[in-house]
Amino acid sequence: MAHDQSITQETEKNSSNKTWEQALNEKSQSLNREGVNQPASTSHKAKGVELLLDKILQTSIRLPMLEITFDRFVRINSTSLRNYTADNVDVEIESMKTERFGDCLSRIGAPSMFSVFKVIEWDNFCILAFDSTMIYAFVEVLFGGRKTPPSLKVEGRSFTSIENSVVKSITEIVLHDLSLAFNPVTSANFQLDRVETNPKFAMIVRPEDVAIVLNLKVTMDTRSGNIHIILPYTTIEPVKKILSKPYIGERGSKDPNWTRHFENEIGKATVTIKVSLDGMPAGLKNVAELKVGKTIMLDKMVGADWDIKLNETIISAGQPGKSGDKLAIQLNDSINLERYKK
């Protein structure tokens, strides 16, 4: 009787589990038919963990000096693009955020052009992305288009050779200005490697890797577009400590107060000066046989200068003498600290 009851309970449990799984599958299928991608319960948990990790990444990576560098870059680049287009160009930062590399490329979407460039000193790659609206705006301005907002959206075609040339020219200007902006912080030379139109061919790191994305809005009268600078976190790893600093002073600047303080404190330091007559190499057996009254022959001639040493380094030379009841030495040469530095 008890055995039959346990079998019945197990059957009801399996039936309830099956009913729950069927209901979940039916709900998932209905959502998929409606165009909604509904993950399973484990995917819900994984998605929550991913969101939490993304939030941690956004709050943990703080690079104050990089923000200052980008502000300097925007000012420099605005002037350069005005000179290049002979038009009123305004460059401003829309946002600077941290996100996964694959999500960033998916957000930019197509049609777009991706200029892959290399940072020589960091030995790694970054990306400069232009959306289609920005590319068409530059082409119209450079080739004398009317100063009206573009009413035609060109989709489903590849970019022409003229548009490719314009993007390469703008990329060279942006990379030059970016190098000037980084120069006060750290040396960085940016070199264009290639230009891609397919995001798959612009994969310089893994899609799940973290990247810092600077979104720029470029406005030219009634036209506007977006430029995106993508710096993978692995690329800026060599200079992460420098970019993490809140402030970097001018190179070569000195505080006279601290200089005088160090000079005074160093002048109070105590050192030991030794006067050496001469020395000679000797075997251990000969040293063991030394006795009272035995003569040691030196290589130095009578009347030669004695060496004055500081930390076993010869800094000067002099003649022995007498001062009162004590031995003394008179310097025959000035103190040469250059040899001591070596």
Rank of each mutant, 00 (worst) to 15 (best):
S165Y: 00
I273N: 02
L192M: 15
S132H: 14
V302S: 03
Y340W: 13
S151H: 12
C126I: 05
F101E: 09
K55T: 13
T85K: 01
D305I: 00
K18V: 00
S115I: 07
V36G: 10
I242G: 10
L298F: 10
S276W: 01
M297A: 07
T234F: 07
T270S: 12
N37C: 00
G293L: 06
F73R: 11
L284R: 01
V167Q: 05
W20N: 09
Y233D: 01
A110E: 05
L298S: 03
G293C: 05
H176A: 14
D333S: 11
M297N: 10
V287S: 05
V119S: 12
E140W: 05
E10A: 10
D177C: 02
E92K: 11
A269G: 11
V116L: 03
Q58E: 09
Q38M: 15
G225Y: 03
L337G: 05
V239E: 00
G144K: 08
T222W: 02
Q22M: 08
T222P: 01
E155D: 09
V213T: 15
N189E: 02
S224L: 01
F101V: 13
E163L: 09
N311C: 07
L216M: 14
R146W: 04
M96N: 15
K18T: 05
N215I: 14
W258H: 03
E338R: 15
N77F: 10
L178I: 13
R146N: 09
G318W: 06
V271E: 13
T235W: 04
Q319C: 02
P281F: 05
L216Y: 15
K97I: 07
V91I: 07
V166N: 00
S43T: 07
S78W: 00
I61C: 10
L175Q: 13
T197S: 15
G48T: 11
L53N: 13
N311Q: 08
C104D: 05
K45E: 09
E50C: 05
P149N: 09
I170W: 04
T98N: 09
V275L: 03
M220H: 12
Y136E: 05
E34C: 09
D71G: 12
I242N: 11
L63K: 02
T69M: 11
G145E: 08
S15T: 12
K240N: 04
N332K: 05
G324V: 06
A23S: 07
L331Q: 14
G109K: 09
V275A: 13
A110P: 01
S60K: 13
S28P: 03
N332M: 03
S15N: 14
R339N: 14
S6I: 11
Y136R: 06
T79C: 03
F143T: 14
T133N: 11
E94R: 12
T222G: 00
Q29R: 07
P150S: 10
Q191P: 04
L51K: 10
N264H: 10
N37R: 09
L142N: 04
I170G: 07
D278H: 02
I248R: 04
N286K: 12
P111Y: 04
A211R: 12
I266D: 03
K153D: 08
F73S: 11
T234R: 12
F101K: 14
V292Q: 13
N336V: 01
E26G: 00
V119L: 06
V139K: 01
R339C: 09
H261R: 02
D193P: 01
E155W: 04
K217S: 10
L81M: 13
G48L: 14
